[in-house]
């Protein structure tokens, strides 16, 4: 499974949208990729269109902290795009007419696929009803249906990375052989009926171009103010820890030993400057707070470059220069 999606991932360059100084990722494949391969899970912030009246499960976009954006850019797996300027140019500049055309074509394709999916669904439901009316057959079809569901939900996993919408929409028909094949009604229906509208998550073909120096903001445009916690984040990330914003537990970061899908956070973490005095009270409060939520309080700092002469080469392994400590309330 992991192996299946790794190869395309290797050359993937994640587009980080910078909008008003915030860093967002809109492409689900990008989100999955950075989560799986680079240990950046960040926070899902959007409303889930399937079920928009709950706050438990949220959808795209994912908001990255500035540190995380910088980390990904420094690792060379992502680039930052100034989304507003890019979109304005591509939407209104005549020079980008071809891009717009491909975008429209892409949309049309999506809409056709959607239409097709609806038709299939309709046909399937109709078939189900017909079966029910048929009497005894219904038991059989009911049994078949869950099997089909499982198969379909398993399918995208294996073909996840590569499959476009078309591929996904077609897969079910492979499994539901006993359902009357939907294709026949399509040719007749498609022309008279109106294609449904579609709002894709990304402006994919419109802004698909890989980073050109002009459109993508340089990596160092990410504010340097992130420094202290950036070093800590790099350190933790290089050791396989996942981090999320620390607001929930009262630190700068919450640190997980693996994907937060599976594990509880172990630490709440704060980054400091190397020579920055750390108020004792901070240690006590955070330490007690961490213990109260069954976590350790972790704090660390990076030794400045001058002191540690290893320099630029150690860029990948920045953890070299970071010292961290963990405080737990002894409760004696």
């Amino acid at each position: 499974m992991a192996a299946a999606s790794a190869p395309p991932a290797a050359e993937r360059l994640v587009r980080i949208s910078r909008i008003a100084g915030r860093y967002l990722v809109f492409d689900i494949d990008d989100v999955v990729y950075i989560r799986r391969c680079h240990g950046v899970c960040a926070v899902l912030t959007g409303t889930m269109p399937q079920n928009p009246t709950q706050n438990l499960f949220l959808g795209l976009p994912v908001e990255l902290q500035a540190e995380e954006a910088k980390l990904l850019v420094d690792m060379g797996v992502a680039y930052v795009a100034d989304e507003l300027a890019d979109h304005l140019a591509r939407l209104s500049d005549p020079a980008f007419e071809p891009a717009r055309r491909t975008y429209r074509e892409h949309l049309r394709q999506l809409r056709k696929t959607a239409q097709q999916a609806f038709e299939e669904e309709k046909a399937r439901v109709a078939a189900l009803h017909a079966d029910k009316r048929g009497g005894k057959k219904n038991k059989e079809s009911k049994k078949k249906q869950p099997a089909g569901v499982e198969a379909a939900s398993a399918e995208p996993e294996s073909s996840a990375a590569a499959s476009g919408p078309a591929a996904q929409a077609e897969t079910p028909s492979l499994f539901d052989d006993d359902v009357p094949p939907p294709p026949p009604p399509q040719p007749q229906k498609q022309k008279p009926s109106i294609l449904p509208g579609v709002t894709p998550s990304t402006s994919f073909p419109l802004t698909a171009t890989p980073p050109s120096p002009a459109s993508s903001a340089p990596a160092d445009s990410i504010p340097a103010s992130v420094a202290p916690s950036y070093a800590l984040l790099t350190y933790l990330n290089s050791r396989g820890y996942y981090t999320t914003p620390g607001l929930r537990f009262g630190g700068r970061l919450s640190v997980y030993p693996g994907d937060p899908f599976r594990y509880h956070a172990h630490y709440l973490a704060n980054g400091y400057g190397w020579d920055e005095p750390v108020p004792m009270l901070d240690v006590v409060t955070s330490g007690r707070l961490g213990t109260a939520v069954k976590k350790g309080f972790l704090f660390g700092a990076e030794r400045p470059k001058a002191a540690a002469e290893e320099g630029e080469e150690g860029g990948k392994d920045k953890g070299e220069n970071v010292r961290v400590f963990c405080v737990e309330w002894a409760g004696m």
């Binding site: 499974m1 689900i28 989100v31 999955v32 989560r35 799986r36 899902l44 889930m48 269109p49 399937q50 499960f57 959808g59 795209l60 999506l110 959607a114 939900s153 995208p156 996993e157 996840a160 919408p165 449904p196 509208g197 579609v198 709002t199 894709p200 998550s201 994907d259 899908f261 599976r262």
Partner: peptide, 15 residues
């Protein structure tokens, strides 16, 4: 979990 997230989030908004 990851696959489910991917599945759920790759929904395309249709009107």
């Amino acid at each position: 979990s990851r696959a489910a997230m991917r599945d759920v989030l790759s929904y395309v908004r249709v009107h």
